[in-house]
Design a protein around this nucleic acid. Sequence first.
RNA 1: GGCCCGUUCGUCUAGGGGUCUAGGACAUCUCCCUUUCACGGAGGAAACACGGGUUCGAUUCCCGUACGGGCUACCA
Length: 521
Amino acid sequence: MNPKVRTRFAPSPTGPLHMGGVRTALFAYLFAKKHGGDFLLRIEDTDQNRYVSGAEDYIIEALHWCGITIDEGVPMGGPYGPYRQSERKELGIYNKYAEQLVTSGHAYYAFDTPEELENMRNRLISAGEVAPQYNGTSRNTMVNSLTLTADELKQKLESGTPYVIRLKMPLGENVTFTDIIRGEVTVNSSLVDDKVLLKSDGMPTYHLAHIVDDVLMEITHAIRGEEWLPSAPAHIMTYRYLGWADKMPQYAHLPLLLKPDGNGKLSKRDGDRLGFPVFPLNWTDPVTGELSSGYKERGYYPEAFVNMLAFLGWNPGTEQEIFSMDELVEAFSFEHVHKSGARFDPEKTKWFNEQYLRMQPVSDLADRLRTSVMKEFNYDASDVRLSEKFLHRTVELLKDRIHFESEMIPTGNYLFETPHEYDQPTIAKKWKDQYLSFFKELVNSLQQLNEFSIAEVDGAIKATAAANSLKPGEIMHLLRVFISGQGVGVDLLGMLELLGKDEVVKRLNNALQMINDKTNS
RNA sequence: GGCCCGUUCGUCUAGGGGUCUAGGACAUCUCCCUUUCACGGAGGAAACACGGGUUCGAUUCCCGUACGGGCUACCA
C-alpha cells in the first residue's frame, strides 16, 4: 500500500509571499487533497541575513485568505515538529547528517575564506574557464579536508577555524531522476558544483535542510518551482549518499510565472509598476515603510484569485473555467500541468472576479453594501437607503455593471446622494429651451402619481412628452442627467422607481433651478 | 558564455500521427439587445517558431537552428 500523500510548502520568510509562491502552495495543496493526504507548512529560515520580521505571519495569513488550509506545520505544530528550520537546527539533525556524509566520504570540510573563493573563480576565469566552480577539479586546489593532512585538519578544527561542509559531487557520472512533470531528466554530475550543505554559522543551506526535513517529515511529493531543476541532481545524490534513496519524495518542478510584459519571471517589483498586485495581501515593508498592494485589498475574491492562479500552467482538460476549491481538488492532476512558463494576465484576473461577483447572492451583496453605506454616509438608522428593499434593488441595478463589490458605492453614488454637479457637456448638447415647460409639467405629473412604479412613471413621462409634442427619446438623456448628474448609469426607470417620488421631484426641481441659474447668468 | 528546461492565436490554453478547413477563454473588432453605459447574445480577425528527417501521412515522433525561461552564492 502506498504511504499517505504528504506535500509541503516551504517558503523562506524573506518578505511577502508573491503570487508565484501562492501558486506553488496551491498546487501542493490540491495534489495532497486530491489524494486524501496532508499539506504542511514548513518555514525555511536558515538565512539569518535575509530574515524579515512579519513575513511568516504574512505567509500564514495569505494561505488562510486563499482557502489553502494547513494540516500540519507552522503555526499549529504537529507530530513531526518543530517546523521552523531555525528551531530544527537545535535538534542537531542537520549537523548530524552533514557529519555522517563527511564520515562516509561524500562530503568534506572546507576552510576557504570568501576572498579565497573569489580568487579561485578569477583564477579559473583567466585560465579560460567559463563556469568557475568549486567542484571535483578545483577542490584539489583549495583548503579543505581533502587537501589538508590529518594533522593540519585537526589543528584547524581545534583552533576553531570557520568551515563549511560541502557535498563531494562525483565527476562524470550521469544522474537520472524522474520528475513528475518533466519525465526523465539526466544531468552529468560534473556540471553541478560541490554545494555547501552546512554554513560556517552552523546553519544548513537549503540543499541539506530540505532533504533532511522532507525525509524526517515523511514528505512523499516535493513540489517546487522550476528554478530548482538545475540543482536537483545534487539533491538526488545527497539522498543516495545518506542512504535515503527509497525515502526520497517524488519531485515535481512547476513552470514559472512570467511578467505580463517584457521578459523574465514575475518579480515582486512588477506589481505596482504595471498597476496590478503581485501579492495576495497588502504588505508594508518593515524597513522602508513602502506599501505593496494585495489582491484582497484591491477587492478581489479569494476564490477568483485562486481560480485564476490554478489556471496558470494547469488546465482541467475540459472547457470549464470556473472552479471552486473543491472542484479544483477533484480535477487536479500533474498530467495537465504545463512544462513551459505562464505569462500572467491581469485582465483575465479581473474577468474571474466578475464571474464570482455575478455568482454572489443579491441578499449577501445587499448586506455588505449596507455595511459600506453606513461607513460611507451618516444616515439615520431609519433612512430608507438602509432598508432591505432599497439595498436589494440597488444591488440588482448595479451588480452587472461592476468588476468589484467595492465599486458599488463609487459607481452608484448618485443613488445615495443628491447630485450637486451635472454633466454639463451633455446638457449643452441636448438642452433646448423649449424643454423647460416639459420638465415643469413632468414634475407636476409625477407628483400626482399615487404609485411610483416603473410602469406609472414611464406612463407619466410618455404622456407629458406627447402633450408637449416631444418624442421621449429627446428628453430621456437629459432626465438622466437631471436625476443622477451623470450621462451614463443604471437603468433610468429603475433608478426613478428606486429613488421614489419625493427624491425624484426634489432632484428635478434642483436641476431646473440649475438650468434657470445658468440661463440668467 | 556554459549547462538545464521549454516553444499552438497578443495572452492563458485544448490537442499525444489521419476526426485540424486546429477547439475554448481573456483581450480586440462588428452586429443585435438597450430611449445611456454596461451586462447578455451572435459573428469576425487572430496560432501549430524555422529547417531537416521518420512515416502512406506530421501540430502531434527524432535531430538541428532560432527564440524564450531558469540556474551558474556560505540566498532560497
